[in-house]
Amino acid sequence: MTAHAISSSAAIDAAKRRDELIAFAVLFLVLAAAPAVIYPFFLMQALCFALFACAFNLLIGYVGLLSFGHAMFLGLAGYVSAHMAKVGTIDIGSANFGIHLNFGPMNPLVAILFGVAASAILGVLTGALAIRRQGIYFAMITLALSQMIYFFCLQAPFTHGEDGIQGVPQGKLLLGHIDLSQQTTMYYFVLAIFVVGFAIIHRVVNSPFGDVLKSIRENEPRAISLGYKSDQYKLAAFVLSAALVGLAGATKSIVAQNASLTDVHFAMSGEVVLMTLVGGLGTFFGPIVGAFIIVAMQNYLAGFGQWVQVIQGVIFVACVLAFRRGIVGEIAHRLGISL
């Protein structure tokens, strides 16, 4: 490669970074000002789903793995953090043999971290199985595993089955200085979590690690022949995705003050696929846009019963047949930039 080619590709990279930075700054300012005009509860819900979708997109967009079971991470983290914030016990094993701890109700941030840890561990277990197959098998395996987790959540005592965990306290941070039961405070807390999660994803995708992931997506045998242990990379990406989904799910349960079976059900796994598809697979901002659209649609159409599901199905079909780039992907394509 000539020096000229190197410097021009560096220039393209710099331009790409600049586009992304501007878009990121605009997004942040819009979100910071949004509660003035939009109902904050909706925004918080949408931000949680946006993080969920971004973390899901990390796998499909950058490693080429379609998980149809990501609800298990969202739901499990939600249950664990809700349980930790409300009760704060850990009971694993039988009465005389196992781990039995009682911390009492926890501060929301710690409860969220427990949720993230739970999803990360689940991510290690399920990821190690699922990456043994590719493509459609990967999708079917993740779907089946998440159905197993669904039944676990239905039957485990701490989740309270069909009732779910209700009345989760929102609590206070920094020795009581930050009161999350204040809606505006909670909103900026959620926004901060979203920004941290989003920044982690952005950092990972643009790191050497992210480059290896992309090369695995493009041509796995070649990546292996270059000496990369592709399974380890895929597993690492899977666990990271699971942990970030867990962050979204845990935060969501603190915001909504409950955790229920809805979040572990496979319909939720489908919804995150839809959000990402609508926004644009493999784009940075697409999953955010997609999440806001789908959450808004669900809120506005809540009175139409199952027609919401039909409409979602129609959007799925339309996106796959005619609109595979998604909204952000289409805009980026038209403008010739990367978003």
Binding site: L66, G305, V310, Q312, G313, V314, F316, V320, L321
Partner: peptide, 27 residues
């Protein structure tokens, strides 16, 4: 119309069809 595309699109399309069919009957 999906010929030549990644097989995952077939999965997504038929998932959408399942949502439509089941949603209509549930209504």
């Amino acid at each position: 119309r999906l010929a030549g595309l990644d097989h995952l699109y077939g999965l997504l399309l038929t998932f959408g069809l399942a949502l439509i069919i089941q949603g209509v009957f549930q209504n």
